[in-house]
Design a protein around this nucleic acid. Structure first.
Length: 103
DNA sequence: TCATTGACCTGTG
DNA sequence: TCACAGGCCAATG
């Protein structure tokens, strides 16, 4: 399998997040699984850590956990951004059944 | 090198 | 979907 350097893995994560179309969202586990084919590693926790450290240049609000919840400390901001993009929200969390996107 | 931490996931009830 | 428990893996001190 194609192992990549941590820095390239970060680039791959950011690229995939940028590829998420408006109105759709992706879970950390789905990102980890999708990138596992090019990175060799698949850990949702690692994706979350990368987003927390390097997610300042991508639509991170399109990345949620399996329950459709948003990262702590940015719930309101993410909810407002998703609402503006037409993402089906269910109260304060995303309706995964409609917004879940697979590349 | 070891121990702790963290924007998580999967079962089970 | 919610609550609880166990696990996974890399970054950080």
């Amino acid at each position: 399998m194609a192992r990549v350097t941590p820095q390239e893995y970060v680039e791959e994560v950011l690229s995939l997040v940028e590829r998420i179309p408006a109105g759709k969202v992706m879970s950390y586990g789905a990102i980890a699984d999708a990138l596992s084919e090019v990175s060799g590693r698949n850990s949702a926790r690692q994706v979350g850590t990368i987003m927390a450290r390097h997610g300042g240049g991508v639509p991170w609000h399109r990345v949620v956990n399996s329950s459709g919840r948003m990262p702590p400390g940015h719930e309101q901001e993410a909810r407002q951004r998703l609402l503006s993009e037409g993402v089906p929200l269910k109260g304060d969390h995303v309706n995964m059944s409609l917004a879940h996107w697979i590349p």
